[in-house]
Design a protein around this nucleic acid. Structure first.
Length: 821
RNA sequence: GCGGGAGUGGCGGAAUGGCAGACGCACCAGCCUUAGGAGCUGGCGGGAAACCGUGGGGGUUCGAGUCCCUUCUCCCGCACCA
């Protein structure tokens, strides 16, 4: 009788053993090829959730698989530890964010360790630790030196009742989440990173990433939002420049009005002292008070107002009225749009509502010249009512018009991006301080590198009354100007946590370096990350910022690669009852409970078995039990085999059952290898392991079984199981008398000769409908198969009186007899 | 609206254009057991059968869950980008 499968003891013991022997710790000193396996590091909320379990289980299968395949695998873990929840906890419970975060890290590290993931814990990093944010600040200074960090005014969400800036997450339907006051916009000087300088490269280099899902690349492409068009230099009647951006410069003769964003500086200037001033001001106030979410909602009724001024169309000198509206974005293009109601549906609707003329300037194919009932936005038409480009088709008309604008100095071709510069200032405490000081005489000055890190002060107040907690520190603000030595004030803003997470994968290469963020030869060795795994929710921001950082550091000659992640796997969500697990829905399943109840191996196995990684996964408690039962089944099987006395007895004669057992074992190895390496189909890999176990049980039940064959099958079984359920595989491996860890073994190679079959079953079809199945020799070629079928005693029955016109033979699969009807 | 993905048994899901439903869950029957929320064996899309079955309708093909067109539903992302 075998011992009970005591997963708790087994898992704890092996986790300890692995840790003590350091089998997952790596260095650059290796003759193996490197493999950098990375999962997105978590925010240390203090509690592991199922999304983490899924993310890290997927990563661990791959890390262990590549390790067994002879790679020097870097598989690190750390903490994305700055951010709002720590500060909220400080306000709510009066605990300082620093110990709060450190305690969470400790708790989560312990939970993570119970999962038995093959991390090199010696490389652990935490973005909130001075030894880490020292280098976040240093990198900021490099970007500053490169002209990629700059300051300008930008809007923040402001709660006048709390007297504080709110993050977007703290704004609920336009109101402060804490006191429900309507949130206002306030303009503050803030730091930006010039990611737009990299827009084109970020776009172009997506083509260098065949290992990324198309979905993510398309999302990034749309986010960058490149569009080609022209600037056209309209002006006001009074002579102010009023340029517009358009992608349809071929329709410039159809402009019948001009619309400006409410924030456009000309609005105040043009209405100043006129009868329109007051009503326009009220309109502008109303629109600009809306939050970004309300402002850009499609449900928002399009409204506008004439501001009493006129613009001149530079191409035909027509005088057109200038309006303001709530749908023109000040941040995009020039904040002014030429209204062409004939060929833009929004303009058409606006013109209908406010009575602007509609002048068609592109004749759609088949258009009879009657009044338009909607805008024609297509590119198939010919220009009309447009003297310079009359009769040209749209692409030609655009070219001709662009040439004309450039020749006459009335405009030029431009490329516009939707991508905006990255606002990194946070009016918050729990982030990396921005290493800048302000001198009355010398202005903004970077903190000298040797003075880094600029440490977060501890003498701060956390209450929602007033401004950033940093401003309550008595000591923090005081600084000395590095240029003139005079008194200076520190920057009070901290950095967006996305800055910290934009380079952590570089720090993992050299986590203990006290003189640099990372050494060049270490990143040269490890980078780029070979496989990155994480939630698709990071498809845009995190991945875009990390790519931007990598490119900027490449340009600064600090890195040799300009893309950080070669392959990307985006995992689906973990659902319960069809919805994302969340506290508010009360459908959260705690990983801790599952691990306590069934063990980490069961938890890992279930989460990998229930769905392929990219898809959403429906949690199912009884299916978890099924995985637990399966591991018990493996446990009993191996113990049963271990008890045999004939494991070393050589096999001289193979009967059919023996051959089938070997085929099952070797074909399982083949399938599992393919499923892991080329498709990430861990669910089908696991089902192949289950099938092998079923076959092995069936074999052991037969008379005259051979121990040596079972020993071979067991070895292959455990090796294949090792990446998925590492503890039980290790335990059974050691029970079989192996001295070295199973995780140090080479990945098994299947024996092609074991896959050979004597006979195969083929299907007999008539016009694609199955009529029979036939067992035939595997060696039979198409001609022999056809002969066998045509001469088969049931041949006439299959044809049912019809005549065969053609016979299709697919050896090993089927024969399809085509008959006339 | 635009972009992406997905629709297959009671459920999760399998199927390089070639035998639909692997594997597992649930369920049913039997065995074993003092007992079973353990283990073992078998069954398990519909239909009496012929046959019919992969959201609906067309098409390509000897052959379609898979490819093409069209349509519906759901999920995700972006959402007035001039």
């Amino acid at each position: 009788m075998e011992p009970k499968y005591d997963f708790a003891a087994i898992e704890k013991r092996w986790q300890q053993t692995w840790q003590n022997s350091g089998i997952y710790n790596v260095t650059e000193l290796s003759n193996k090829p490197k493999y950098y396996m990375l999962e997105m590091f978590p925010y240390p909320s203090g509690k592991l959730h199922m999304g983490h379990v899924r993310n890290y289980s997927i990563g661990d299968v791959l890390a262990r698989y590549y390790k067994m395949n002879g790679f020097n695998v870097l598989h690190p873990m750390g903490w994305d530890a700055f951010g709002l929840p720590a500060e909220n906890a400080a306000i709510k419970h009066g605990v300082h964010p620093d110990p709060w975060t450190r305690e969470n890290i400790t708790a989560m590290r312990e939970q993570l360790k119970t999962m038995g993931i093959s991390y090199d814990w010696q490389r652990e990093v935490g973005s909130c630790l001075p030894e880490y944010y020292h280098w976040t600040q240093w990198l900021f200074l490099q970007l500053y030196k490169m002209g990629l960090a700059y300051k300008k005014k930008a809007a923040v969400n402001w709660c006048s009742s709390c007297g504080t800036v709110l993050a977007n997450e703290q704004v609920i339907e336009g109101h402060c989440e804490r006191c429900h006051t309507q949130v206002e916009k306030k303009y503050l000087e803030q730091w930006f990173l010039k990611i737009t300088a990299y827009a084109q490269r970020l776009l172009d280099d997506l083509s260098k990433l065949p290992g990324w899902p198309d979905k993510v690349k398309i999302m990034q492409e749309n986010w960058i939002g490149r569009s080609e068009g022209a600037h056209i230099e309209f002006s006001t009647e009074a002579g102010d420049a009023l340029p517009v951006f358009t992608t349809r410069h071929d329709t410039v003769y159809g402009v019948t009005y001009m619309v400006l964003a409410p924030e456009h500086p000309l609005v105040a200037k043009l209405t100043h002292g006129t009868e329109f001033e007051e009503t326009v001001r009220i309109f502008v106030d109303k629109v600009t008070k809306l939050s970004a979410i309300e402002r850009t909602s499609a449900a928002l009724e399009k409204e506008g107002m004439f501001i009493g001024a006129y613009a001149i169309n530079p191409v035909n000198r027509h005088r057109i009225p200038i309006w303001i509206t709530n749908y023109v974005l000040y941040e995009y293009g020039t904040g002014a749009v030429m209204g062409v109601p004939g060929h833009d549906q929004r303009d058409f609707d606006f013109a209908k509502k406010y009575g602007h003329k509609i002048v068609p300037v592109v004749a759609a194919p088949g258009w009879d010249g009657s009044d338009l009932t909607e805008a024609y936005e297509g590119y198939e038409g010919k220009a009309i009512n447009s003297p310079l480009i009359e009769g040209l088709n749209t692409p030609q008309a655009k070219e001709r018009m662009a040439d004309y604008l450039e020749e006459q100095g009335l405009g030029r071709r431009v490329i516009n991006y939707r991508l905006r510069d990255w606002l990194i200032s946070r009016q918050r405490y729990w982030g990396a301080p921005i290493p800048i000081v302000y001198c009355e005489k010398c202005g903004a000055q970077p903190v000298p590198e040797e003075e880094l890190p600029v440490l977060l002060p501890t003498d701060v107040e956390f209450n929602p009354q007033g401004e950033s907690p940093l401003k309550t520190s008595a000591s923090f603000a005081k600084a000395i100007c590095p240029l003139c030595g005079g008194p200076a004030k520190r920057e009070m803003d901290t950095m967006d946590t996305f800055v910290c997470s934009s380079w952590y994968f570089l720090r993992f290469c050299d986590p203990k370096n006290e003189n640099q963020p990372f050494s060049r030869n270490k990143t040269d060795y490890w980078m780029p990350v070979d496989q990155y795994v994480g939630g698709v929710e990071h498809a845009i921001l995190h991945l875009m910022y990390a790519r931007f950082f990598t490119k900027a550091l490449f340009d600064a000659d600090l890195l040799s690669c300009d893309e950080p992640f070669t392959n990307l796997l985006t995992q689906g969500m973990v659902l319960k009852d069809g919805a994302k697990m969340s506290k508010s829905l009360g459908n959260v399943v705690s990983p801790e409970d599952i691990i306590t109840c069934y063990g980490a191996d069961t938890a890992r196995l279930f989460i990998l078995f229930a769905a392929p990684p990219e898809r959403d996964l429906e949690w199912n408690d009884t299916a978890v039990e099924g995985c637990y039962r399966f591991l018990n089944r493996v446990w009993r099987l191996v113990w049963q085999i271990k008890a045999r006395k004939d494991l070393d007895v050589p096999v001289s004669e193979f009967v059919e059952a023996d051959i089938e057992l070997r085929r099952a074992a070797h074909s399982a190895v083949k399938k599992i290898t393919e499923d892991i390496s080329s498709r990430f189909n861990f669910n089908t890999a696991i089902s192949a392991i289950m099938e092998l176990v079923n076959t092995m049980y069936a074999y052991t039940a037969l008379p005259l079984t051979k121990g040596a064959l079972l020993a071979e099958a067991t070895k292959l079984l455990l090796l294949c199981l090792a990446p998925f359920a590492p503890h039980i595989a290790e335990e059974l491996w050691s029970e079989l008398g192996n001295k070295q860890s199973i995780h140090m073994q080479p990945w098994p190679v299947f024996d092609p000769s074991a896959l050979a079959q004597h006979t195969v079953e083929i299907a007999i079809q008539v016009n694609g409908k199955i009529k029979a199945r036939l067992l035939i020799p595997a060696t039979a070629d198409a001609a022999i198969i056809q002969k066998l079928v045509l001469e088969h005693e049931d041949y006439e029955v299959w044809l049912n009186g019809k005549t065969a016109a053609k016979v299709i033979v697919i050896p090993g699969r089927l024969v399809n007899i085509v008959v006339k009807s």
